[in-house]
C-alpha cells in the first residue's frame, strides 16, 4: 500500500509541470521577436488574427521544447542545471512529454495555417522539426557547432511573423533571421564560459569542452564581428530607420567591446573576478537582441504615424 502511494505521488504532475515542459522563458523571446516580425511587415492583419498567429508560434516553440525534454531526459538528469526539469525529476513521464509535444505541434501548425496562411504554417512546422530533430536528435550530441546551426530554430520566429502577414519571404525577414542566428553563438558561449556546466559528464560536445576555453573566446569574437554587418544592413532596409540605426551603432559598439575584452583575457584573469566580464557580456547580449527588435518596432510606429 505504501509503495503504491509513493509511486502514484511521483508521477502525479501538477499543471505547472506541464507548463514547465514548454520552456516558458525561451517562449518570451519567441513571442517578442515574432510579434515584431508581424508588426513591421507591410500590410495589416486583423488584431485578433495577429494575436492568434503569435500565440500559435509561441505554442509551437513550446511544443518543440517538450519534444526536446522527452529526447534529452537522459542528459538533463545528469546535469545539475536541468536535473529539476519535469521529466528527469519524475513528475512527468517521458511518453507524456512526447504526446504533449506532438499534439501541441499539430494544433499550433494547423491553427496558424487556418488563421493566416499555409506558408507561415509550413515555416512553423519546419522550425519545430529543426529544433526537435535536427538540433536535439542529430547535432547536439555530435558536433561542437551544435548551437550555431541549432540557433536557426530560435531565429525563425520573426520570419514566421512576417510570413503570417505577407505570405512570403523577403530581404528584411531574412535579415531579422540572420540577426538572431549570428547572435546566438556569442550569447551561448559566454554562458558556457561562466556556467561551467557539467556538459562533459553528460557527453554533450560543447565547444568549451572539446576545444577549450581559449578557442571559445576566439569564437565569440569571430561571431560578434560577423554579426555587426547583419545588424547594420538591417538598419538600411525598408523596416529600418533612424532609431534602428542608432540602436545598431550603439549596441554593436558595446557588443564588440565586450567580445574584445573576453578575447583579451585568459582563464586566470577570469577566475580572479569570478567571470565578471563574461557575465556582463551575457547580460548585454540579452539587452542587445531585445533593444534591437524594440528599435525596429519604434521605427515601424513612426512610419505608421508619418
Amino acid at each position: 500500500m505504501t509503495d503504491a502511494t509513493a509511486i502514484t505521488i511521483e508521477h502525479e504532475a501538477g499543471f505547472g509541470d506541464y507548463v514547465a515542459l514548454l520552456k516558458p522563458r525561451v517562449m518570451s523571446l519567441v513571442v517578442f521577436t515574432a510579434l515584431v516580425g508581424l508588426l513591421v511587415a507591410p500590410g495589416a492583419l486583423h488584431p485578433f488574427v495577429g494575436f492568434t498567429a503569435v500565440l500559435c508560434i509561441a505554442v509551437g516553440a513550446g511544443a518543440s521544447g517538450a519534444l526536446n525534454m522527452w529526447w534529452d531526459a537522459d542528459i538533463d538528469a545528469v546535469m545539475k542545471r536541468t536535473a529539476g526539469r519535469p521529466v528527469p525529476s519524475g513528475r512527468v513521464e517521458a511518453g507524456e512529454a512526447l504526446a504533449i509535444g506532438l499534439a501541441l505541434s499539430g494544433f499550433s501548425v494547423v491553427m496558424l495555417g487556418l488563421a493566416t496562411n499555409w506558408f507561415a504554417a509550413a515555416l512553423l512546422a519546419f522550425t519545430i522539426f529543426f529544433y526537435a530533430v535536427v538540433y536535439t536528435m542529430w547535432l547536439k550530441r555530435w558536433t561542437p557547432q551544435n548551437i550555431v546551426i541549432g540557433g536557426a530554430s530560435g531565429a525563425f520566429p520573426p520570419m514566421i511573423g512576417w510570413a503570417a502577414v505577407t505570405g512570403g519571404v523577403s530581404v528584411e525577414s531574412i535579415l531579422m533571421f540572420a540577426l538572431i542566428f549570428m547572435w546566438t553563438p556569442p550569447h551561448f558561449w559566454a554562458l558556457a564560459l561562466f556556467m561551467k556546466s557539467d556538459y562533459k559528464d553528460a557527453g554533450v560536445p560543447m565547444l568549451t569542452v572539446t576545444h577549450g576555453r581559449r578557442v571559445t573566446r576566439t569564437h565569440i569574437l569571430a561571431y560578434t564581428v560577423l554579426l555587426v554587418p547583419v545588424a547594420m544592413w538591417l538598419a538600411f532596409t525598408s523596416i529600418g530607420g533612424p532609431m534602428t540605426l542608432v540602436a545598431a551603432l550603439v549596441l554593436n559598439a558595446l557588443f564588440l567591446k565586450g567580445a574584445w575584452d573576453i578575447w583579451n583575457r585568459d582563464e586566470s584573469a577570469a577566475e580572479a573576478d569570478a567571470y565578471l566580464t563574461e557575465r556582463k557580456f551575457f547580460k548585454l547580449s540579452l539587452a542587445y537582441l531585445f533593444l534591437h527588435f524594440g528599435a525596429l518596432l519604434v521605427d515601424a510606429t513612426w512610419r505608421a504615424f508619418a
Partner: peptide
C-alpha cells in the same frame, strides 16, 4: 493529500 492538490491543479 498533496497528490490531490496536484491533480486538482491539472
Amino acid at each position: 493529500h498533496e497528490m490531490h492538490k496536484r491533480r486538482l491543479s491539472r
